[in-house]
């Protein structure tokens, strides 16, 4: 396997964990001058986000391939109070076979799986067991998700336990209050501690952008988390009233691009919550492609946090093969 960051890995090379291909983001010292210089003009960002869907269109075979790509980067997620072990096992089965074998066969995409399965800490061991041998990693939300307001030592301990249970990816939530009070040092320290607690498991920092008040705060928090060693930055828990949006995405992608330009580290991106249509997924992929480049269109640098998105993609893929619109019941639930 190539360790050259400039080589785009092929499908067969693609494993899901970033450190296999790329040098892991080591973080940097906290650079408050840089943070202070970051600006985000909401109206201009919204304009770019609003016009992008009209600028990029993916049709026919290309659309089918892009939708398969979307499947390959889904963190198939269940984060509900009523989750049970069997519920999680059902989800894992869907992660192994996200689209019917017959459709994948006709598309020439046999073996396609989702990017990961994402669960609460208590379900990690079950998911790891259910996914054994599939190569699909388990991601855990492990820091007092979704509010992140449990005691810091308990949040750190939760990370350690999730890692011990076999989670390869930890989705942490940041303390929004540190952003809202501009306490960048505290945010940075928290990110550093959590990164350290993750050890070899890679860490996605959830900004809960819907609660940060402004795109400027989103941009600055993105930067702090990357300085603190985040492998991914992620929009939302899915529990805020506003989750992933295109303007927020554009803001975070620009932060990732600036961070790479300054440090050389490629940091991943995960929009989560609210992306439920195949068409939306295509727009997100186009934005990643145009703003960050093709290298980011791999599961080690991009994920969708989604649950219902997959169902719509399955219908669209069947439509591609048959030329007729499909129905939900024709596809297995996850």
């Amino acid at each position: 396997m190539s360790l050259d960051p400039n080589v785009t890995p092929t499908t067969t090379m693609t494993a899901n964990v970033p450190q296999i291909h790329l040098p892991r983001n080591a973080g940097t010292e906290l650079d408050l001058d840089w943070v202070a210089a970051v600006q985000a003009n909401t109206s201009a960002i919204e304009r770019r986000a609003a016009t992008l869907p009209g600028r990029r269109s993916v049709k026919k075979a290309h659309q089918a391939a892009w939708l398969c790509k979307a499947v390959s980067v889904i963190d198939l997620t269940t984060l509900s109070g009523d989750d049970t072990h069997m519920r999680v096992r059902r989800l894992c089965a869907k992660a192994r076979q996200p689209v019917s074998a017959q459709i994948l066969d006709q598309l020439g995409m046999t073996g396609l799986t989702t990017g990961a399965v994402c669960v609460y800490h208590d379900m990690v061991a079950t998911a790891v067991d259910a996914l054994d041998g599939s190569g699909i990693p388990v991601a855990a939300v492990s820091t007092g998700f979704p509010a992140g307001l449990s005691p810091l030592d308990l949040r750190i301990e939760e990370i350690r336990r999730s890692v011990a249970d076999g989670a390869q990816e930890i989705d942490i939530v940041i303390s929004r209050r540190h952003v809202l009070t501009q306490n960048w040092q505290a945010l940075y320290d928290e990110m550093r501690m959590m990164r350290e607690a993750c050890g070899d498991a890679h860490v996605k920092a959830i900004l809960a952008t819907g609660e940060l008040g402004s795109l400027r705060n989103v941009a600055r928090a993105s930067l702090i988390c990357m300085m603190g060693g985040a492998d991914f930055i992620k929009t939302s828990t899915g529990k805020e009233s506003v989750n992933a949006t295109l303007p927020v995405t554009l803001t975070m992608l620009r932060a990732i691009r600036a961070y790479e330009a300054r440090t050389g580290f490629k940091v991943g991106y995960k929009p989560a919550g609210g992306i439920s249509k195949a068409k939306d997924a295509l727009v997100y992929l186009a934005m990643i492609k145009d703003e960050l480049g093709d290298r980011w269109l791999q599961p080690d640098l991009f994920r969708f946090g989604a649950s219902s998105l997959l169902g719509d993609i399955e219908r669209q893929l069947e439509h591609h093969l048959t030329g007729r619109y499909s129905a939900g019941y024709r596809h297995a639930i996850g």
Binding site: T10, T11, R56, S57, V58, K59, K60, A61, H62, A64, A65, W66, C68, K69, S72, L107, G108, M109, L285, A286, K289, D294, L297
Partner: peptide, 16 residues
């Protein structure tokens, strides 16, 4: 180009 090829290159393709 097969779907697999496009999956790897992630080109836009033509959309006339």
């Amino acid at each position: 180009m097969t779907i697999k090829d496009i999956f790897d290159t992630m080109d836009y393709g033509a959309a006339p």
